[in-house]
Amino acid sequence: MEQGTVKWFNAEKGFGFIERENGDDVFVHFSAIQGDGFKSLDEGQAVTFDVEEGQRGPQAANVQKA
């Protein structure tokens, strides 16, 4: 798993971006967030995640709040 920081996340649209430790950004969809209840992330929040190849390039999977 990688570690990163939430760059931004739009809860209304259900997606955002995580900044990886290497400085690259990776797309995150709310469906990739682990846990119960409303799935959202806060700007600046530390997270761990896997990276999978999506239809439009790399995207975060198995996102967990650190």
Score class of each variant (00 low, 15 high):
E52C: 09
G44M: 05
N10K: 10
A66D: 09
H29T: 04
F9V: 04
Q3P: 06
F38D: 08
D36P: 12
F17M: 09
A46K: 15
E53P: 12
E52F: 13
A61L: 12
G54Q: 07
H29L: 06
F38V: 09
Q45A: 09
N22V: 13
N62E: 03
G57S: 06
H29A: 04
W8D: 01
W8E: 02
K7S: 05
R20H: 06
F17R: 04
R20W: 10
G44W: 05
V28Q: 00
W8A: 03
D25I: 11
N22L: 10
E19N: 12
I18M: 03
K7W: 03
K39I: 07
G16V: 01
F30W: 15
N62F: 07
F17S: 03
D42G: 10
F49N: 00
V6N: 01
G16L: 01
G14M: 03
N22Y: 13
E52Q: 11
I18C: 02
M1I: 12
P58F: 11
E21N: 13
H29W: 05
T48V: 11
F38W: 15
G54L: 07
E12K: 15
A46C: 10
E43D: 10
E2F: 15
N22I: 11
T5A: 07
Q45P: 01
R20E: 02
E12A: 15
A60E: 00
D24M: 12
V6W: 03
K39N: 06
G57H: 05
G35Y: 08
A46T: 12
K65L: 12
Q59P: 01
G44T: 04
P58S: 09
V26M: 07
K39G: 05
K7H: 06
F9T: 02
N62P: 01
Q64T: 10
K65D: 07
T5D: 04
V47Y: 03
K39M: 07
G23Q: 10
G37C: 08
E43M: 14
S40P: 04
T5M: 10
E53Q: 15
G23T: 06
K65N: 09
M1V: 13
A66T: 12
F17V: 08
E43P: 15
D36R: 11
V26H: 01
Q55M: 13
M1G: 13
E2N: 11
I18R: 00
V6I: 09
A32I: 03
D24C: 10
A66P: 08
G57W: 05
F15G: 02
L41D: 02
V26A: 03
F49Y: 07
G35K: 06
V26Q: 02
G16R: 00
F49H: 01
A61G: 08
G14P: 00
A11M: 11
V51E: 04
N10E: 04
G35E: 10
G14Q: 03
F27Q: 02
F17G: 02
V28Y: 04
Q59H: 09
S40A: 09
V28N: 00
F27E: 02
N10P: 02
Q55D: 12
G14L: 03
K7V: 05
L41I: 05
G14S: 03
K13M: 10
G37L: 06
A32M: 06
V63L: 05
A60R: 00
Q55L: 14
K65V: 14
V28D: 00
D25M: 13
D36G: 11
G37Y: 07
F30V: 06
S31W: 07
K65Y: 10
G4S: 02
K39Q: 09
T5Q: 10
V51F: 07
F17P: 00
E2D: 09
T48E: 06
G57K: 05
G16I: 01
R56G: 09
R56P: 06
G35P: 05
A11D: 07
G35M: 13
G44F: 06
P58A: 08
N10D: 09
I33S: 02
R20M: 08
R20D: 05
G4V: 01
N22C: 12
F17A: 04
F17L: 05
P58D: 05
W8H: 04
G57Y: 05
E53Y: 13
V28S: 01
A11V: 12
E19F: 15
D36H: 13
N62I: 04
S31R: 11
K7R: 12
D24A: 15
A11T: 13
T5F: 13
E19M: 15
V63H: 00
R20Y: 07
G4M: 01
P58V: 09
T48Q: 08
N62H: 10
G35L: 08
F30N: 04
K13H: 10
A32P: 01
G14N: 03
S31P: 03
A60G: 04
Q45L: 07
F38E: 08
G35C: 08
V28W: 03
V51T: 07
